[in-house]
């Protein structure tokens, strides 16, 4: 690890504002990643590096291929061609669950809180390397009781931080949309990830909760985690991201700090142009 910089912006010292720019300390690298559905090329990314310890936003109009790219980065989908490196590990052919165990955890656009399990069970699920997750050891509770208690303690601490303690023993299905987003984020932290990948964390969250969600995302960075998130909303992106990557029609068309993006002509064109072909929308909203 490099020496801790005083602000996140400094991480990007000397990085040019152009698509595919090399970062000072990339945690995640995608190279020539391509994925087509039938004849339609959804993603065709030449090169992307994600800076460690920063909040990177992945934006773009509908149908830009953001979610598909996101799935490819987290190995929830296999690219037709191309390589992805996470902390130096080649992800080709690695199962999605192993990627999570390597320290990359994702959330989903449509929240996947497990609604028929309690909030605390949702949290406990995130604990890694649980002895009690073996069938035979499951029958011998004394082998996993202590670990379970530790996990529960950590889960309770996180619930406290995300202000969900009062819902601890409720079914997750009873939570509001925003609370589910919080739960999903908290649950992701149970894995102790190095990078958190958030797929549209703000979608469907009521305005009152938005600010607290943003603070939580910033909190992750302050703890040394890397965050990559997909978002539609430009204002939101401006507020919390250190670096912005713009996709359109499957390609990366611009990169740079948030201030540089709104004035970028390619980005403006992509957004305005996109309204005319919304019928081609690939995203399953």
């Amino acid at each position: 690890m490099n020496a801790e910089p005083s602000t996140a912006q400094e991480l990007f010292d000397g990085v040019p504002y152009e698509p595919g720019a090399a970062k000072n300390d990339p945690i995640l690298v995608a190279d020539n990643v391509r994925r087509a559905f039938g004849g339609l090329v959804a993603v065709d990314v030449e090169h992307l590096e994600v800076q460690r310890g920063a909040i990177t936003a992945l934006i773009g109009p509908n149908g830009a291929g953001k979610t598909t790219f996101f799935n490819l980065l987290t190995n929830f989908d296999e690219p037709d061609t191309g390589d992805r490196l996470f902390e130096g590990n080649d992800l080709s052919g690695v199962s999605a669950y192993k990627v999570a165990n390597l320290g990359m955890v994702r959330t989903f656009q449509l929240t996947k809180s497990l609604s028929k399990m309690t909030v605390i069970d949702n949290m406990r699920l995130g604990g890694t390397e649980q002895a009690g997750e073996s069938f035979f050891r499951a029958l011998l509770p004394f082998l996993w009781r202590r670990q379970e208690a530790e996990i529960t303690e950590r889960a309770d601490a996180l619930l406290e931080r995300f202000k969900l303690s009062h819902m601890r023993d409720e079914f997750a299905g009873t939570l509001s949309g925003g609370q589910r987003k919080l739960l999903e984020m908290a649950r992701a932290l149970m894995v102790r990830p190095n990078i958190v990948m958030l797929d549209e964390p703000m979608a469907g969250v009521n305005p009152a909760l938005k600010q607290s969600l943003l603070d939580h995302v910033k909190g992750l960075r302050d703890e040394g985690m890397t965050v990559l998130f997909v978002e539609h909303d430009m204002d939101m992106v401006q507020e919390i991201s250190d670096w912005v990557v713009v996709m359109a029609e499957g390609r990366i068309i611009a990169e740079g700090p948030p201030e540089s993006i709104s004035s970028n002509q390619a980005v403006v064109d992509a957004y305005l142009g996109s309204h005319h072909d919304s019928a081609l929308d690939l995203e399953a909203d």
Binding site: T74, F76, S95, A96, Y97, K98, A100, N101, V105, R106, T107, F108, K112, S113, L114, S115, K116, M117, D121, R124, L125, G126, G127, T128, Q130, A131, G132, E133, S134, F135, R137, A138, L139, P141, W144, E148, R187, A188, M190, V191
Partner: peptide, 30 residues
């Protein structure tokens, strides 16, 4: 009864609810 109260059973129930979620948390759903 015993396995369903254990972490093992918890993973199964998580898979029933949403396999991708379980996978995203590092569980080998398969």
């Amino acid at each position: 009864w015993m396995t369903m109260r254990s972490p093992w059973g918890r993973v199964l129930r998580a898979i029933r609810e949403d396999e991708d979620a379980a996978r995203s948390l590092g569980k080998n759903a398969y």
